[in-house]
């Protein structure tokens, strides 16, 4: 089953967008729930986004340097 990994919302009034710094995984990699997938940067700090599920990375949908918003799909996983 294909699972979309989205940039999670941290709530109203909170950070809503970030810039992709770099990926920590390649397409085809096996990842476990909690493994860091990608590094993001906001105005405040650098953030790593952990995988919400275990599976295989199918497709990375954002590239380094992209500005992404909460809810955007970062990559897909085959779970």
């Amino acid at each position: 089953m294909t699972y979309e990994v989205k940039l999670p919302s941290l709530g109203e009034d909170s950070v809503e967008e970030a810039t992709v710094s770099y990926w920590l995984v390649e397409e085809g990699d096996q990842v476990k729930e909690g493994d860091d997938l990608v590094e993001m940067t906001t105005d405040k700090a650098a953030f790593s986004v952990p995988s919400p599920e275990s599976g295989t990375v199918l497709e990375k949908l954002v590239e380094e340097g992209d500005d992404v918003r909460v809810g955007d799909v970062l990559c897909t996983l085959e779970t």
């Binding site: 940039l7 999670p8 919302s9 810039t19 993001m40 940067t41 650098a46 790593s48 986004v49």
Partner: peptide, 16 residues
């Protein structure tokens, strides 16, 4: 690009 941060300024972006 946003400014780079030193490597100790890093947190998790996760919900759960």
């Amino acid at each position: 690009m946003r400014q780079p941060f030193p490597d100790w300024i890093r947190r998790k972006w996760a919900s759960g």
